[in-house]
Write a protein that binds this DNA or RNA. Structure first.
Length: 359
DNA sequence: GAGCCGTGGCT
DNA sequence: TAGCCAAGGCT
């Protein structure tokens, strides 16, 4: 490896040699992905871009993040602009990405950076960890990638790679203590940021959850799980629980060429997002319970189904038209501009289904 | 520790 | 196709 090419690394390497890190970094220097948020060799990483990308990538694929990252940067290119952004605009910009607390926490963190840190991002893992939305993983990743700190970066990729390298037989989540300790032993003092990204690239391309490509792996000779003949048996995962089925009703209330939208409560599912009105979500279909207005409701044929992380939802579709100035809480949004409302996917799909049926 | 919190892609 | 999975954080 070529330590002089490290991005923003300053600490001298006082650690014992780590053949695993050396082999991985050599592989990374040849196979690293070129990603929009990633500094190229010799470039200095932009902490704002590193942070934004890490948050967007939480539980979210690179393919989904790519276009969103560029659009976001065009609107809010730095901490100062994000700190004064309107929360409604930010939430709408995040629509479709999921885990909406991330968007609210981005704004909150930017405001803390401006108000309490003079607009400069904290440079240590410990200080980053105190910002909203930066947990153990993201604080370590930003500290390592943006600031060159030797932080132990453990995400699902690292968990998988390390559990295989060391053939850790304890099941998740209890294994995380041992995995972190093992990850610490192979994390180099120099190029900790490159090392973290190398582990993620390896996990993404080679050491995959299913059918790992061990023949192409630069760490094959180090891997206890491969030596045991069952690399894909690690990490050991707990049995998943079944997702319950819930039922609800979506209310499509028209007035002229507009439809009623509401804002969901800040806490909880789809918190703070613009939405179509719905009644309660429960074990059986609730019918017209909690309709947003007295009207001549008509049920459409069929339901819209949507899977969330911890339950499955069937939504019946109720439509009605009202006239005049009956006061109704919410916003009347032009139906032909619903795409600009920033609806979460479940409501965007329901709206499509309703419009198709002439709602 | 365990439940809650989205979505799209892949097998 | 139904389940699995992805650069997690918060309570």
């Amino acid at each position: 490896m070529d330590a002089k090419r490290a991005d923003g690394e300053k600490t001298p390497d006082l650690s014992a040699p780590s053949p695993i890190a050396d082999r991985l970094l050599a592989w990374y220097d040849r196979h690293r992905r070129d990603l929009p948020w990633r500094a190229r060799p010799g470039e200095t990483a932009d902490p704002y871009r590193v942070w934004l990308s890490e948050v967007m990538l939480q539980q979210t694929t690179v393919a989904a993040v790519r276009p969103r990252f560029e659009n976001w940067l065009a609107r809010w290119p730095d901490f100062a602009s994000l700190a004064v952004a309107g929360e409604a605009d930010v939430m709408a910009a995040w629509a479709g990405l999921g885990y909406y607390a991330r968007a609210r926490n981005l704004v909150a963190a930017a405001r803390v950076v401006v108000a309490e840190h003079g607009g400069a991002f904290p440079r240590t893992e410990a200080a980053l960890r105190r910002l909203p939305g930066l947990g153990a993983y993201t604080a370590a990743a930003v500290a390592a990638i943006a600031f060159g700190e030797r932080a132990v970066v453990v995400d699902a990729n690292v968990e998988r790679v390390v559990a295989r390298l060391f053939a850790i037989r304890q099941p998740l989540p209890a294994a995380r203590t041992a995995i972190r300790r093992a990850a610490d032993t192979i994390t180099p003092n120099m190029r900790a940021g490159d090392f973290a990204q190398a582990m993620m690239d390896l996990g993404s391309a080679i050491c995959t959850s299913r059918a790992p490509k061990c023949l192409l792996c630069p760490l094959a000779d180090d891997c206890a799980a491969l030596a045991a003949g069952t690399p894909d048996a690690f990490p050991v995962k707990p049995a998943k629980k079944a997702r319950p089925q819930r039922h609800g009703t979506i209310f499509w209330l028209r007035r002229g060429d507009r439809v009623l939208l509401v804002r969901r409560p800040d806490k909880g599912l789809l918190g703070g997002m613009r939405a179509l009105p719905t009644g309660p979500w429960q074990d059986a279909a609730p019918g017209l319970e909690d309709a947003p207005a007295q009207a001549d409701w008509r049920m459409l044929d069929g339901v819209v189904t949507h899977g969330f992380t911890h339950f499955q939802l069937d939504l019946a579709l109720a439509v009605a038209t009202i006239e005049g100035e009956q006061p109704v809480a919410g916003e009347w949004w032009p139906i032909d501009a619903l795409g600009t409302a920033g609806l979460p996917t479940v409501f965007a799909r329901a709206a499509d289904a309703i419009v198709e049926q002439g709602g």
